[in-house]
């Protein structure tokens, strides 16, 4: 068999690269400043108003003269002592203080709602502007079409799931195209979670609610919108975690370089049906 040749392709055009890194920065800051805002009232409810007796999520602290601070996290009926991380965690002086999310997960690190809001809304605008420019470009450059699953993609769905679970990644030319799970993940994040988080965010504005009332009604009220906003942020964290994991297991240097310079390297070899068969051949 002929030896595979190393090939370099220009994979990620400039708008994708800029959009990607601006997004990464915005999501990082929005998450951590969002947790600062959450800390101002660390309880979530369903409905229009807050039923203070019945939050579905609560990250609270308890203080007693003898034991000092302890953290308590409650989700529906389930409750746990989370001292050290949630509810009560070490502040700047190293001593436990009552705060829902710890200092190292909030922007700013200290309890400072006004500044957390400033960070949050500034970078929310950057994210919205970045996403709008990206979508306009993607629509006209035909990039969005690359994200739409083809019939062939759907046929390989089961195989793709298996490949992902076994940490086997497409090699060769196939590695330069989005696979079905990638396509679905990106579409879900952009149009699902992305849309959800922007809308639920807007629904928390009393002035925007004067025109968004049907949307607010759809979410189930302002406190529901706040809960969904929080959950959607959790969904984005999950996406980023899987995304980073996949980058690491599929060749972090090559992936990172391609998202910085645009150039991606792969081994050129005869086309085959699936990642699995290629793996076997390499082994043999």
């Amino acid at each position: 068999m002929a030896r595979a040749r190393l090939r370099t392709v220009y994979r990620h055009p400039l708008p994708v690269r800029i959009g990607h890194w601006v997004n990464a920065l915005c999501l990082f800051i929005l998450l951590l400043s969002g947790l600062q805002i959450f800390n101002a009232h660390p309880h979530l409810y369903w409905g229009s108003a807050s039923n203070f007796e019945a939050p579905w999520l609560s990250i609270d602290y308890h203080w007693s003269r003898d034991d000092g601070y302890s953290g308590r996290t409650q989700v529906y009926g389930w409750q746990a002592d989370t001292t050290g991380v949630l509810g009560a965690s070490p502040g700047r002086n190293g001593e436990l203080e009552g705060r829902a999310f710890p200092s190292w997960l909030t922007i700013p690190g200290s309890r400072w709602l006004a500044m957390g809001r400033s960070w949050h809304f500034f970078f929310a605008w950057i994210l919205v502007i970045n996403a709008s420019l990206f979508l306009i470009w993607a629509l006209f450059a035909g990039h969005l079409r690359r994200l739409i699953p083809t019939l062939e993609d759907w046929r390989g769905f089961g195989q793709s799931v298996l490949d992902h679970l076994r940490l086997r990644h497409p090699t060769g030319e196939a590695a330069t195209r989005y696979n079905i799970l990638q396509k679905l993940a990106y579409l879900t994040v952009i149009f699902g979670l992305g849309g959800l988080i922007v809308l639920t965010g807007l629904c928390m504005s009393p002035r925007m609610d004067t025109v968004l009332e049907p949307v607010l009604e759809f979410f189930g009220g302002r406190q529901s919108a706040r809960s969904i906003h929080f959950l959607a942020a959790g969904g984005l964290v999950l996406f980023v975690a899987i995304h980073l994991f996949e980058v690491i297991v599929s060749g972090p240097v090559n992936q990172l370089r391609s998202m910085i310079t645009g150039f991606f390297r792969y081994r050129d070899e005869p086309a085959t049906d699936s990642a699995t068969t290629r793996e076997t051949r390499h082994d043999g």
């Binding site: 959450f38 009232h41 409810y45 807050s50 709602l113 009393p206 406190q223 706040r226």
Partner: peptide, 12 residues
């Protein structure tokens, strides 16, 4: 009306 506090809670 619904009163929305900057902290995040609401009361009617």
């Amino acid at each position: 009306t619904r009163h929305d506090c900057v902290e995040g809670w609401s009361a009617i």
